[in-house]
């Protein structure tokens, strides 16, 4: 066998392994949503405009994720777009497969219901597929030496983490029930807790992938530049997912704010986890 043929085979092998990891992690990370009743119902009652918006918003996030951690090391944006497309494809196929296996897709359902169910689930499944390489593949340590993340990418990574966690929790009834039960004092406590946990997660508890400050930088520099914007990003993502899933209904502004704060708690954890993992 010539070197070139061996090289090509090696390349195909690595690509197939990447696909396998994608399917595995799409399953692993999206299964909670695939098995959530509210997500099945949303598949048929979610407004088509909002579903479309969610599907479109997912594209730039996948491309950015792919640029960081794609199936193969991606150096150009063209390769990132290709890998993001593959991840979306894996997401759609995995959702289709699992929903069909669980008996949630039947021939007598209207086409729009089938399409809505699969399309909605394909968003978390595609993010899951993309995360596969970082989560289940080899660690980041060997390939990210000395890379610099621009500020806007850092914020977008946080948005992706927040979106993924929000998609897990926003469709459940619990988000609204918690918002209804809580008083303004509880809301204040949740805000403070979210911000503290978010800052501590990234800077204080020294996880692998944690962030360090240079000794001459005061702590509040990172707090103002990263933690507060991160929390605002998490809240914005919470507003977006609650709006997409039509959880707001005709509630008053205060009730809406409460539900955003409730969802903002897991979303802010997702945002800081993204900063650690990615």
């Amino acid at each position: 066998m010539t070197d070139r043929a061996a090289d090509a085979e090696n390349h195909v092998g690595r690509f197939l392994t990447g696909l396998g990891r994608g399917v595995a992690s799409a399953l692993f990370l999206a299964l909670p949503m695939l098995m959530t009743m509210e997500m099945w119902y949303l598949g048929f009652y979610i407004t088509r405009e909002r579903l479309l918006l969610l599907l479109v918003v997912n594209i730039p996030l996948l491309i950015l994720l792919s640029h960081r951690i794609g199936f193969e090391e991606t150096f150009t944006w063209r390769e990132s777009v290709r890998d993001a497309t593959i991840a979306y494809g894996i997401g759609i196929l995995t959702s289709l497969l699992v929903l069909a296996a669980l008996g949630l897709l039947r021939g007598d359902m209207p086409a729009s219901e089938l399409l809505g169910k699969v399309a909605l689930q394909s968003v978390p499944a595609s993010i899951g597929a993309m995360l596969g390489r970082s989560q289940l593949g080899r660690g980041m340590s060997e390939d990210d030496d000395g890379t610099e993340t621009p500020y806007h990418s850092e914020l977008l990574l946080m948005a992706t983490g927040a979106l993924f966690v929000s998609l897990n929790i926003a469709p459940t009834e619990e988000t609204m029930v918690l918002a209804y039960k809580m008083t303004a004092w509880h809301a204040l406590a949740v805000i403070v807790l979210s911000i503290l946990v978010m800052h501590g997660f990234v800077y204080a508890v020294s996880f692998i992938g944690g962030h360090e400050l240079q000794p001459e930088t005061p702590w509040w520099h990172a707090f103002v530049r990263f933690t507060l914007p991160g929390y605002v990003v998490a809240l914005a993502v919470s507003v977006f997912t609650l709006w997409v899933f039509e959880s707001f209904g005709n509630s008053s502004a205060v009730e809406m704010l409460h539900s955003v704060i409730v969802l903002g708690f897991p979303a802010s954890l997702g945002a800081s986890a993204a900063r650690l993992i990615l």
Binding site: D145, T149, I208, G209, H211, R225
Partner: peptide
């Protein structure tokens, strides 16, 4: 943010946009 050997280091001399975003947040 600079990443080295799995740890990330925030830069000491950030762009003014980072401060603006921080203050607005």
């Amino acid at each position: 943010t600079r990443s080295e050997k799995g740890r990330h280091h925030e830069r000491h001399d950030p762009h003014w946009v980072e401060w603006l975003t921080g203050i607005l947040s």
